[in-house]
Design a protein around this nucleic acid. Structure first.
Lengths: 253, 253
DNA sequence: CGGAATTTGAGTGATCTCGATTGAAATCCG
DNA sequence: CGGATTTCAATCGAGATCACTCAAATTCCG
């Protein structure tokens, strides 16, 4: 029983869109198709200009969907590991509220294929998950903040007021003993409503965020249920987290 | 004994609407009809443009995000011309409500560079305009309907209820003397609210849409302020539009 | 009831997709 | 430079899918 033609090519496009480049072998194993078949698909997709073939694989051509590529560079491996770990901790058929941000975007990347209900106000995350048939996606609307692609403002607030979810997964601009910070007051207002809409709050952050504050104060540590962070976290901060009664999950290599 | 013709085809449409794709074998067993019969049905439904046949089955043909298929580019030049003409008719610093769909997407493509406030429930359109610094983008949230990438449902309804715009630009699945149609009841519900939120209603449609109806009825012609269509429109329909008191704009070469 | 039109199901050969194989071309590495 | 390795394009057979035809079944209508 083989995968359908269109479906397979759709998958290829999706992978290339996400990663920017795929090797031929990677596609072969990922799709379970033969090398010949993948070659034919790449040939076709190149023919209609959807991708650009290169020796050994294929590359993405055209407009970049994710507007903030530069910022993604910092702490990338850590964020990816965190993303994988968080995704594994989410049970099948759960409902999650996914905040915007680069780390939560990495979480979203690892959710592909799982059967979930995802609520988000982030355009990049919505793009990533919109094509996943197994994921039911609910978009929080609002004024689309240009730099980060998250929906904020009164419309977002109204939507969040009508929503209740068991789990919120959010990023942060900085964490100190006093609590969480983020870079933007409008964003923080929106995140406060997210906190109220959720029973559990999981914060994902690479270890460089600890000890740093940012422009806008969000909330105190007691609001947080669990923090997922890479193994580079110092003993001091591990202690702080434990003392605050927060569950700590380390995403090691 | 056997299922009625229309009833069976209706079932096929429903399944495709829900799943986005069905294999031929799946339909055979689900409908209890023979392969030949299902083939004939698919052939017919493809002929009237309700579905798109693919090898192994049939796929949803509603306005899709991915212009994956070249055949979908059938009315592409017309749509592009319509898009250009509409964009020229929108004054600087205006506020518009942009419905989802392939034709409205072409409109959005032509808005780049203009200084505007755009409200939309379409993910593809949001992607297109999110990067434009001159455009302030407000996103209507809701359940993100797969395949088409438009936000619908209660959240979208609530957001639309709080919005008022001078101009709505919407696409359509079909136009007859009785009014406008679209492919999906959930979509139509949402579009009704858009109609109420707007003072003027502009409908963009290539001429192939005229005389065709679709699954769900939207509204009568009197709701429409202006129709923008390519030059291929027959005299009969030009008369109908004029008689309905609708302004007609032709997008010629 | 009876005949015509329509709808249906099975069969048939043509067409398409896919995976394996082959030899050529490009790339790598010592 | 030369050999080994990887990647590529072309080809072929197997199996799936398709369009087409024809006869049986059903419905329609006088």
């Amino acid at each position: 029983m083989s995968m359908l033609l269109d479906q397979r090519r759709e998958s290829i496009l999706q992978v290339i869109e996400q990663q920017g480049f795929v090797s031929l072998q990677e596609l072969v194993s990922k799709l379970g198709a033969s090398e010949s078949t993948v070659r034919r698909d790449l040939e076709y997709l190149d023919g209609i200009g959807q991708i650009r073939r290169t020796r050994g694989g294929a590359a993405y051509t055209g407009d970049s969907i994710t507007p903030f590529d530069e910022r993604r560079a910092s702490a990338m491996p850590e964020k990816q590991r965190i993303g994988r770990v968080v995704a594994e901790m989410i049970p099948q058929d759960a409902t999650i509220l996914l905040d915007g941000g680069t780390t939560t975007l990495e979480v979203a990347r690892c959710l592909t294929g799982k059967s979930l209900q995802v609520v988000t106000n982030s355009l990049p995350i919505a793009n990533l998950l919109a094509q996943q048939p197994s994921i039911e996606l609910i978009l929080i609307g609002g004024y689309l903040y240009p730099r980060t692609g998250v929906a904020l403002g009164p419309l977002a607030a109204a939507a969040l007021a009508e929503i209740h979810v068991p789990r919120l997964i959010m990023g942060t601009g900085g964490i100190t003993e006093k609590g969480l910070y983020n870079s933007n007051t409008l964003l923080v207002e929106c995140e406060r409503l997210m906190l109220e809409a959720a029973e559990e709050v999981w914060v994902v952050a690479d270890s460089s965020k600890f000890g740093r504050s940012a422009l806008a104060y969000l909330c105190e540590l007691s609001k947080v249920t669990r923090i997922i962070v890479d193994g580079g976290l110092s003993d001091h901060w591990r202690g702080v987290i434990r003392d605050a009664g927060i569950e700590l999950t380390l995403a090691d290599a």
